Computed example of a mutant assay.
Amino acid sequence: MSRPPADFDVPLNTACCPPLIGAALAGVDVEALLADIGIDREAADDADYSLAPALRAALWRESLQRSRDPALALHAAEAVPFGHFDVVDYVANEAPTLGEGIAALARYFRIIRADFHLRFEQDDDEGRLWLELPPSFGLVVPYTTEFTLGCIFTRFRGIVGDGFAATEIRFDYPAPGHLAEYERVFACPLRFEAEETLVRFPRSVLALPQPRADARLRLVLERAAAAVLARLPPASDLTQQLRQALSEELRGGTPTCEQIARRLAIGVRTLNRRLQGEGTSFQQQLADLRCELARGYLEDRRLSISEVAYLLGFSEPSAFHRAFKRWTGHSPQAWRRRAAN
């Protein structure tokens, strides 16, 4: 399959879950898939939010296997209709230029995914759109990135046509086996194993007018989007920065508070005081991140327990065994067997 059929309708009960959209598109029995993994049907709408990393990875794995479509995430993105993301779709559509539309999308993206970070900047030379996913997404980062950027490209191409073209896209993971579908969907130079996921746009593209823009309607939609955004729980930039720094330091061993404070350019006392004010601590954030990542890594049976311990910064596997048992009540081996059944 190279693209979704034009008459495909995204089932409402898979609306918020990209792997289920792709599975339904390929004719997979979604009910059986969820039952086999052990995901409650009522939780499927917001599965990407509520699932533990291990179950999220299992959902992607089973959707890919049963659909026999390695480009499932890209095809799911193409199948999601305009308006699916409610006010964010419309407020981006009503901006007068493509650059302002992308800026509006980034500004209100928390309404779609509060745990993702989409950032847009432009200068006299170009525009740059960054996408950062939570560290807990681990093994499913490529699929989630494909879906997210695929949705963005599909939407803006639907507004301005083939004029929506990037200078380059950089991905922070290796090239996939279905590279031809990347080239078809994104239609620009692609670079893999980069330090970050980044889309670059020329100024000429950002200046393109959006033909359906309505200045008065835009003001109404901007007010509506801002009101929705204001009702969301405030995101803690400090916690996000802390978790990102921790994830980058783990392979070198157990990060210390002093080490991370230096990376964040703040004092140790200030870091601890601010974390305490948010009802958490450095050690709690470190343990939570390690637990999330561990469950995701253990889903990949190509990784030995010793390799998982190394990826999480433990000096020896026995230390990882004790910590994992403390976090989950199971040994890593028992968790792996349980997740496989």
Results as ranks from 00 to 15, higher is better:
Ala213Gly: 06
His321Cys: 12
Thr167Glu: 09
Phe120Trp: 12
Val28Trp: 01
Ile112Trp: 13
Phe282Gly: 08
Leu275Arg: 05
Glu299Asn: 02
Arg243Trp: 11
Cys188Ile: 08
Glu222Tyr: 00
Asn272Phe: 09
Ile266Tyr: 09
Gln244Cys: 05
Leu293Phe: 11
Ala32Ser: 09
Ala71Met: 11
Leu179Asp: 08
His117Gln: 12
Glu183Gly: 11
Ala103Arg: 06
Val160Arg: 03
Arg110Ser: 15
Thr197Glu: 09
Ala58Val: 10
Ala323Thr: 09
Asp123Met: 12
Ser50Ile: 06
Glu258His: 15
Arg251Lys: 07
Val88Pro: 02
Asp89Lys: 03
Leu289Gly: 10
Arg68Glu: 15
Ala54Arg: 08
Arg68Asn: 13
Asp237Gly: 05
Val205Ser: 07
Asp125Ser: 13
Tyr297Asn: 11
Ser67Pro: 14
Phe282Glu: 03
Gln241Tyr: 11
Ser136Ala: 15
Leu289Ile: 11
Arg336Phe: 13
Ala77Glu: 04
Leu229Ala: 02
Gln240Cys: 08
Glu100Lys: 11
Leu98Arg: 04
Arg269Tyr: 06
Tyr182Val: 00
Pro209Lys: 03
Thr97Met: 04
Arg263Leu: 12
Gln240Thr: 05
Glu249Arg: 10
Leu219Ser: 13
Gly296Glu: 03
Ala47Met: 01
Ala79Asn: 06
Val308Ala: 07
Gly279Met: 13
Gly177Ile: 15
Ala309Arg: 03
Tyr297Ser: 03
Ala77Lys: 00
Arg191Ala: 04
Arg107Tyr: 10
Arg110Cys: 13
Asn93Gly: 01
Ala235Val: 14
Leu217Asn: 05
Ala309Cys: 14
Leu298Asp: 08
Phe314Gly: 07
Cys16Ala: 14
Phe109Gly: 10
Cys188Asn: 07
Val80Arg: 01
Gln276Trp: 03
Arg337Pro: 03
Phe147Pro: 03
Thr154His: 15
Ile21Thr: 01
Arg113Trp: 03
Ala92Gly: 01
Leu133His: 07
Ala52Trp: 08
Tyr143Lys: 07
Leu264Ile: 08
Thr97Pro: 07
Phe192Arg: 01
Leu250Gln: 08
Ala6Val: 14
Ala334Phe: 13
Glu62Gly: 02
Pro135Thr: 04
Tyr90Glu: 11
Asp69His: 05
Val160Glu: 01
Ala215Met: 02
Ala32Glu: 06
Ala230Val: 00
Leu221Asn: 02
Gln333Glu: 12
His75Val: 00
Pro81Phe: 10
Asp69Gly: 06
Glu292Cys: 12
Val185Gly: 03
Ala24Phe: 00
Leu118Ala: 06
Arg269Ile: 04
Tyr310Asp: 15
Ile152Trp: 15
Gly158Lys: 05
Pro209Met: 15
Glu126Gly: 14
